[in-house]
């Protein structure tokens, strides 16, 4: 552990959790969002904590350390294409070299490129404190714009991304340019079938509301249906989203966001034979 004035540089996760439990500190992972304001905060520097940098996998999960940078995630052989696609359109190389998935998600911005993918893929988040660990779905971790369930003594340590069924994905991000673009609307979809039956029809919308939107009860409508059956309920399905999505206005209008969301959702279904 190195302490310089109000900055803490822990050597490992245990040290990091100890400080987090004892001091009022802001966890610092990549810094790319925090440093825009560059206030004189007390930082807990996590960017070199080995446990938080690790990317690994078991049979069920891809496990991404919260302080792994996007470049590291992009270079990891087991990273699914849907996540790579989102990272590819995230800012530019220098930012991807520093920015982390943990920071991106903890910021709790509906525009966060990686959050969208974690939402649609049912990714779980592992939180730890000196007292123990807990695992939450991302929907429960992000509680509002800029708000998370992270406790004052806790750190986000790892993402558990279920590996199954990620191949057939749909991803589209609307930014104002080809690089260095903050998402104006983003859509991610995952569609799976077993035999004739739909087993997953997940759709997530970024940059349209205070949090990434996902409607599990609407998705449930499609589960177990055959494609012809799904076609029969398509307009009802779309109407539900049309009613439920009430976008915020920002650099682009709410109307624009809404149209893009609905266009992409419909195209997602069409692409999958619905």
């Amino acid at each position: 552990m190195v302490i310089v004035e109000n900055g803490y540089i822990p050597a490992d996760l245990a040290e990091a959790l100890k400080i987090r439990g004892e001091q009022t500190v802001i966890p610092y992972a990549g810094g790319t969002d925090l440093m825009v304001d560059a206030e004189d905060h007390a930082y807990l520097f996590l960017n070199k904590v080995p446990e938080l940098k690790r990317i690994s996998e078991d049979e069920t999960y891809l496990k991404i350390g919260a302080a792994a940078t996007f470049t590291e995630i992009l270079n990891y052989p087991g990273t699914p294409e849907i996540l790579k696609a989102a990272i590819h359109y995230l800012a530019a190389p220098a930012i991807r070299n520093m920015a982390t998935a943990g920071g991106n998600v903890s910021n709790a911005s509906p525009k966060a490129d990686s959050s969208l993918i974690f939402y649609v893929s049912d990714t779980l988040l592992k939180l730890a404190s000196a007292k123990g660990e807990r695992i939450l779905p991302i929907e429960d971790f992000i509680t509002g714009r800029g708000k998370t369930a992270l406790q004052a003594d806790e750190l986000l340590v790892e993402f558990l991304m279920p590996k199954k069924g990620l191949e057939n994905y749909y991803y589209e991000k609307v930014g104002a340019r080809k690089a260095l673009a903050i998402s104006r609307v983003a859509f991610a979809g995952l569609f799976n079938m077993e035999g004739e039956r739909i087993t997953r029809c997940a759709a997530a919308f970024g940059s349209v509301a205070d949090v990434v939107l996902r409607f599990r009860d609407f998705e449930a409508m499609m589960i177990g249906l055959t494609l012809p059956e799904a076609k029969a309920v398509k307009s009802e399905f779309l109407a539900k989203y049309d009613q439920a999505i009430v976008p915020i206005r920002g650099r682009v209008s709410a109307d624009y966001r809404k149209h893009v969301c609905m266009n992409l959702l419909e195209d997602f279904l069409t692409q999958n034979g619905i």
Binding site: A92, A176, K178, L180
Partner: peptide, 10 residues
């Protein structure tokens, strides 16, 4: 980040 000029990719 708000006034958008072209990057090398545009």
């Amino acid at each position: 980040s708000d006034y958008i000029i072209p990057t090398a990719m545009d």
